[in-house]
Design a protein around this nucleic acid. Sequence first.
DNA 1: CGGTTCATTGATTCGCGTCAATGCAGGTGG
DNA 2: CCACCTGCATTGACGCGAATCAATGAACCG
Lengths: 248, 248
Amino acid sequence: MAPNIVEFPLSQKRSASAMVESPCDDCAIREASVCSVLKQDELIRLRGISTIGHLESGGTVFHEGDPAEHLSNVIEGSVKLYKLLPDGRRQVTGFLFPGDFLGVALNETYAYSAEAMSKLRICRFPRRRLEGLLNELPKLEHRLLEVAGNEIVAAQDQMLLLGRKTARERVASFLLILRRHAEQRRQQLNPVDLPMSRADIGDYLGLTTETVSRTFTQLRKDGIIGLPAQGKVDIRRRDALENIAEGA
Amino acid sequence: MAPNIVEFPLSQKRSASAMVESPCDDCAIREASVCSVLKQDELIRLRGISTIGHLESGGTVFHEGDPAEHLSNVIEGSVKLYKLLPDGRRQVTGFLFPGDFLGVALNETYAYSAEAMSKLRICRFPRRRLEGLLNELPKLEHRLLEVAGNEIVAAQDQMLLLGRKTARERVASFLLILRRHAEQRRQQLNPVDLPMSRADIGDYLGLTTETVSRTFTQLRKDGIIGLPAQGKVDIRRRDALENIAEGA
DNA sequence: CGGTTCATTGATTCGCGTCAATGCAGGTGG
DNA sequence: CCACCTGCATTGACGCGAATCAATGAACCG
């Protein structure tokens, strides 16, 4: 299928090392992911249908329109989701990080493409089998509905951003989103990590790389942010960013 | 609560007319709504927590930020959902019609405002009690997840539209969305019904009323659509619209 | 050290927004 | 029945914010 995913069935791994501990036990993102709602015995059932996939940076997890054969949890690395127009215009619809779930919209085909932004490790579930399991693990289904709800809320915020905000407001909003995520993941807040290129940011915000770059420079000159290094943004005046982001 | 909703508890109605048939029995949208997945006895349980709400055109169902006390099914009429920026800029995030579900994102507070675009009748469920029922009606939860998935897919399409499409492409896409919905609802396809104002369309597409109007005129002059009357659009060359919408 | 990729900056263009006027249908009351 | 109002749609003139086109700079890498 997706030719650049290297796959390790967990079952295989287990048989190789016999009575090994559940691979879920030392999963770094178990508590942050959808798996957190499951008890040990339920987790074992879910693990039974999962395999681990590896991708290099830039690798394609799947393409828009492909039959949706797997859903995944991001274990390590980050992913960008995007849609394309025939002439190449691109809209990035989201970025995923460890613990995030890929494919909540349980459709027959993927509605967007997904590409690794760094070395990536994901925990993959065959869609059909996961859907079957949902009948027996209502807590998991409940959790997925919760995740879907969050995604809908985020999507509506993004529509407001794309439809009505200025370039400056978009960039300010974006930096605050990043900060919020870093907070949730208990990562360094200042400077905040910016693991994507200017082009990716532009395609996420409905702007060009040039406009993103100019807006960063402008915010820096205003003393609101600092740009200490590639892929880092220092948030100097969070209140100012909040005001700009909300259009106040 | 929401002061302009007139409410009729179904239980009250029942006691008034004793052994009356279930009000769900003659619900025009039962088969089109989330209720369609429930059997008779399950439907009765859901009915047990529902009330009917009435609003006049222009009435507010709820405001963004209000505690989310009810979820609803639209029975009759139509609704627009929108978010506001403090200075009044508005983004319409969706339009709802009979059979559509209002509030899939089961959050503590509403993430957007909802306003009746015509005389409106909705079937309302207290959120807490519905969430409780979900544990006992897994089919309903499954269906909600499905609905949420559809909403996510639609939201992503809208992000592509808002972030990357030109005014002409946005309007063409919008007309095709309307046509698709009319098709699903087995309504008249040509001319297709346009129950919202130019301002609402503009706020949905991230444009001004003037640009929407000019673009309609332009498409009319190109012989692609006709504008026979207020609130009607005749789709003359669907293929041309499809091409424009996809940016081809 | 040369090549590649990405970010920044500048000059110019252009699509859509803004501002303003006019048209048009429906409703209301004399 | 008509004069008037009100809200919405259309059309035109003009300006601006972001895109486009182009060049340079900075980091990384074999």
